[in-house]
């Protein structure tokens, strides 16, 4: 497995979307590839931190609506 594929599988596994075979191949790759080991480690930490922070975001559609309202209010204010 080449490095770019290893990183891709590592990204997918952060979202539990990597297959068992992919994960086995990734782990074999990590045994001999130091660079990808580093990436995997940081990537897993990022996932943990984001889970710990219990982040909340607005839905993009909802942001669009907010934008429209704000633009309307801005226009009204300028007139």
């Amino acid at each position: 497995m080449p490095c770019d594929e290893a990183n891709h599988v590592c990204d997918k596994s952060q979202y539990k979307e990597a297959s068992l075979l992919e994960k086995i191949k990734l782990n074999l790759h990590l045994i001999y590839c130091k660079a990808c080991r580093g990436y995997s480690k940081n990537n897993a930490k990022l996932t943990k931190r984001i889970e710990a922070a219990e982040l909340e975001c607005l839905d993009p559609k909802c942001k669009e609506d907010m934008k429209k309202d704000l633009e309307k209010a801005l226009k009204e204010q300028l007139h």
Binding site: E54, L55, E56, C57, L58, K63, M66, K67, L70, E71, L74
Partner: peptide, 19 residues
């Protein structure tokens, strides 16, 4: 720059409020 507020701050303010 109010026209950029939503893109720049909406998620940050929302996260702050929801908690």
């Amino acid at each position: 720059h109010p026209d950029k507020w939503i893109d720049l701050y909406a998620d940050y303010l929302f996260n702050y409020t929801v908690t």
